Lab assay of single mutants.
Amino acid sequence: AQASVVANQLIPINTYLTLVMMRSEVVTPVGIPAEDIPRLVSMQVNRAVPLGTTLMPDMVKGYA
């Protein structure tokens, strides 16, 4: 199964992502692939992302 990117903490709206904020986990539904974690660093979330939430492409500015 493919691992997705999951929030490792509460990520406030407009926060620039860093490695410590994200982890990879096999979840349903599938979100942003874990292999894209390096690409996500320094990208901004466009909403608050609670701890344990799967990151979806529409949550990250400029990802989709």
Rank of each mutant, 00 (worst) to 15 (best):
A1C: 03
A1F: 09
A1Y: 09
Q2V: 11
Q2F: 13
Q2K: 04
A3D: 14
S4C: 04
S4P: 01
S4H: 01
V6F: 02
A7K: 00
N8A: 13
N8E: 10
Q9W: 10
Q9T: 15
L10C: 14
L10Y: 15
I11E: 00
I11Q: 01
I11K: 00
I11Y: 01
P12L: 14
I13T: 11
I13K: 09
I13G: 11
N14E: 13
T15D: 08
T15P: 00
T15V: 14
Y16K: 06
Y16Q: 08
Y16N: 06
L17I: 14
L17T: 00
T18H: 13
T18Y: 04
L19Y: 12
V20S: 15
M22N: 00
R23T: 05
R23E: 03
S24L: 05
E25N: 08
E25C: 04
E25Y: 07
V26T: 09
V26N: 12
V27F: 02
T28F: 04
P29F: 04
V30G: 10
V30Q: 09
V30E: 15
V30A: 08
V30M: 09
G31E: 01
G31I: 02
I32Q: 00
P33S: 10
P33N: 15
E35P: 10
E35V: 11
D36A: 10
D36L: 06
D36Q: 09
P38Q: 14
P38T: 09
R39S: 07
L40S: 00
V41Y: 11
V41K: 05
V41C: 04
V41D: 05
V41I: 08
V41N: 05
M43K: 06
M43V: 05
Q44W: 06
Q44R: 10
Q44L: 11
V45H: 00
N46F: 10
R47P: 02
R47Y: 15
A48S: 14
A48G: 08
P50C: 05
P50F: 14
L51F: 13
L51D: 11
G52Q: 09
T53F: 13
T53H: 09
T53V: 14
T54W: 02
T54M: 08
T54L: 05
T54Y: 02
L55T: 00
L55N: 00
L55V: 11
L55C: 02
M56K: 09
M56A: 07
M56W: 08
P57G: 08
D58E: 12
D58M: 08
D58G: 14
M59K: 02
M59V: 11
M59G: 04
K61F: 09
K61M: 07
G62C: 05
G62S: 10
Y63K: 03
Y63A: 03
Y63I: 03
A64L: 13
